[in-house]
């Protein structure tokens, strides 16, 4: 309500915000409903690879704010910024936002070598697949919006707060959030202590939201194609038997496929999750061999039909993986 009043009080001026990925566009639109939000990569595209075309450069050139995930995911982003002719949105400037700033990272490699495949030196960048990370990203974007549009800075911050509350309710359920507070639940979840704590205190039945819906996934053996899902796995507690791509970005060898097939059978893995932008022929072959099913997963908004919101994204993943 406060945010609404603040928005009404300040004269409308549409900000041009360019974001690299669809999920960043969804959060930005929630924080700044009157902003013109342009998303560079489609959800159907592999976010690692995008051609920095003149059309994209020109769009970046007209932005008031540029938001990128970071963690070396959008390797094409630097070239866009170099060619955009827009100094205010360059890295380090007020019109630039690293969305991943302050988000706890997983899979930060201890040894950096290409022998391990296409590693991300600063950690796995697919952080949006854990809703627990969304509010921090919203705070980062709200701060960026506030820098380019100081008159509405409080309103952006208030909307980020609303977004945080809504995310906690979707993740933990309204009842548990009302009882314990979303921020405390989030901190417990971040440290991996939420479910043990709730069980110890006999509160597990008060858990709602996505974590309750995904309870059946806990401990479920699963195989993924690419190492995009570590944040989702961290939140929903599946047991990853292996990856079809044993090293990121490297086509698997025949020996690895045999080993994975044997490991799947031994562990009873019945699902192979694969981002919709990957070729699923290898996964299908493995599924036919082991009796598992291939679950197409939305890596981002727009990746699959109906996945048009952050809520729909997590719903799709839970449903596809059997939660």
């Amino acid at each position: 309500m406060i945010a609404m009043l603040l928005f009404l009080m300040v004269p409308a001026h549409a900000q041009d915000v360019v974001v690299t990925l669809p999920w960043l566009g969804a959060i930005t639109s929630e924080l700044a409903p009157d902003a013109e939000v342009t998303v560079l990569a489609a959800g159907t595209e592999d976010p690692h690879y995008l051609s920095p075309t003149p059309a994209l450069m020109a769009q970046v050139g007209q932005a008031d704010l540029y938001v990128e995930n970071g963690l070396n995911l959008e390797l094409w982003s630097a070239r866009l910024l170099d060619g955009a002719g827009n100094p205010s949105i360059r890295r380090g400037q007020s019109g630039h936002v690293w969305a991943s700033e302050g988000v706890p990272r997983l899979e930060v490699p201890t040894t950096l070598t290409r022998a391990e495949g296409d590693l991300h030196p600063e950690g796995n960048p697919h952080l949006w697949l854990d809703p627990l990370n969304w509010p921090q990203v919203a705070d980062n974007i709200a701060a960026g919006l506030g820098r380019i549009d100081p008159g509405k800075a409080e309103a952006y911050a208030a909307r980020a707060e609303e977004f945080r509350d809504a995310t906690w309710e979707r993740l933990f359920g309204a009842d548990l959030v009302a009882f314990m507070g979303g921020d405390l639940l989030a901190r417990l979840a971040q440290g991996g202590q939420l479910l043990p704590f709730l069980e110890q205190k006999g509160l597990e039945d008060r858990l709602g939201g996505w974590l309750a819906a995904g309870r059946s996934l806990r401990g479920q053996p699963v195989v993924f194609y690419h190492q995009s899902w570590v944040y989702f796995v961290e939140r929903f507690g599946m047991e990853v038997v292996g990856y079809v791509e044993d090293r990121p970005g490297i086509s698997p060898s025949a020996a690895h496929k045999q080993e994975l097939s044997a490991a799947m059978t031994a562990a009873g893995a019945t699902v192979i999750g694969i981002s919709s932008y990957y070729d699923d022929r290898l996964a299908q072959a493995l599924a036919a061999e082991t009796g598992a099913r291939v679950a197409p997963l939305a890596g981002d908004l727009g990746a699959l039909d109906g996945v048009d919101s952050l809520q729909a994204l997590i719903d799709q993943l839970l449903e596809a993986l059997g939660g």
Binding site: E101, V103, P104, G123, L188, Q190, F197
Partner: peptide, 18 residues
Amino acid sequence: AEALAAANAPPPPPPTRA
């Protein structure tokens, strides 16, 4: 719960940079 959360808080991530 607060004590548990504090005891198990992940270390603050380093700032993102190129």
